[in-house]
Design a binder for these strands. Sequence first.
DNA 1: GCGACAG
DNA 2: ATCTTGTCGC
Length: 249
Amino acid sequence: MPLGAGAEERRGWPATEREALAEQARLRPLAVLDAEGPARPRTLAGLDVAYAGTGGPEDRVAGAVVVLDAATLDVIEEATAIGPARFPYIPGLFAFREVPVLLAALAKLTAPPDLLLCDGHGLAHPRRFGLACHLGVLTGLPTAGVAKTRLIGTHAEPGPERGDHADLVDEADGAVLGRVLRTQRGVKPVYLSVGHRVGLDDLTRHVLAAAPRYRLPETTRRADRLCRDALDADTRNADTRNADTEARA
DNA sequence: GCGACAG
DNA sequence: ATCTTGTCGC
């Protein structure tokens, strides 16, 4: 999947909270949040990141993207990438920590997925520009956030059945930020929000279809396992190299 | 000042 | 996210 070096790469990655906030403000207007569809995506991609450290900018991170056939949920393609976190974990600036390694993994795909499902929020963000929006603007692909917990907004408790849902609303202005969806009877709901070039109704259908059995959609489950495995494999390789160096000393 | 706070 | 023992349930 062709992803040329973006302006971000040439300008350097934000090093401070202030620079990151400025970058969010610069990119935010580029997100397309009023789109419909994609109605019938052929492929759905799940993205996730695993960490080695405790939240600092030096942590080792592994990103993964898993492309599934939207109809059968069979794996079509996978890719991973490993590198430094490059930014500390700060709620609201999450993307600056995960985007670099996710872009690196996406660049290894042979074809662009029809919809990227990110592990985090999109519009449901303090400044309306979560990880899913950020990744959408940078790749140009349809993206959405599928988060396990709330970041902002309030909502009623969704009904108990699979498919039941409630609006996630910004108390300040009444704006609908996303949707709280029950993917299985009797389990905690997940938080959906638009990222770029997708509609909330279509997103809800796709996530429900991708979660036939568990709380989280297969996209998220597959990506979660893949990035975890990639990080563990890298850790073992590093240990092996260190052992060899010690032996030769 | 006191909580809340994606992963 | 990651660190971690046991435990309740299908």
